[in-house]
């Protein structure tokens, strides 16, 4: 089933083993090269924790199910710390072509809720296949040159 980053923000995160509520989705961290969701970020700032995609038992329409509470981890490296601080959040990021031209702002991203594979990037009224995504970081999401507007 197709999901979106915007729609899933704020969704509750539950433990499958204890049925306890563990928090709410702050945003999703992507692996741009794999065009895949790497982790779900829960909370923000010092208290933020991450759950790797592989540790989910389901990304459902009403709750994100985590196998157990032990799957929630504090940020482990620079990239995860940047994610915890919200600096890598894809939605709202400027979209830049690999030719160095701005294409607009990334309004939303859709993904397959079963696999975490990214589907489409929504930039203004354009819908761009996620295969065009080359990289993403704190400054921009970089798309391949096929997304360049023709002069």
């Amino acid at each position: 089933m197709s999901e979106s980053f915007q729609r899933s923000a704020g969704r509750k995160v539950m433990s499958r083993s204890s049925a306890k509520e563990l928090g709410a989705v702050s945003h999703l961290l992507v692996d741009a090269q794999q065009r895949q969701i790497a982790a779900v970020v829960i909370g923000r700032g010092k208290k933020a924790q991450l759950v790797e995609w592989a540790q989910l038992s389901g990304f459902g329409p009403d709750a994100v199910m985590v196998v157990d509470e032990g799957a929630l981890q504090p940020p482990a490296d620079d990239r995860e710390r940047a994610a915890a601080e919200g600096r890598l959040e894809l939605v709202g990021k400027r979209a830049l072509s690999e030719r160095g031209n701005e294409l607009g702002k990334l309004d939303d991203v859709t993904f397959d809720a079963d696999t975490g594979a990214l589907e489409d990037l929504l930039i203004g009224d354009r819908r761009v296949h996620a295969g065009s995504l080359l990289g993403s970081g704190s400054y921009a999401a970089v798309l391949d040159e096929s997304q360049e507007p023709s002069p």
């Binding site: 741009a32 160095g100 990289g135 970081g137 970089v142 002069p151």
Partner: peptide, 24 residues
Amino acid sequence: MRLLMTASQIRGLPVVTVQGGEDV
């Protein structure tokens, strides 16, 4: 038709990594 710019317009531009999306 070619898209052109002057060298003065390049000064101050961020240098951004394709793979990392970071302004380095």
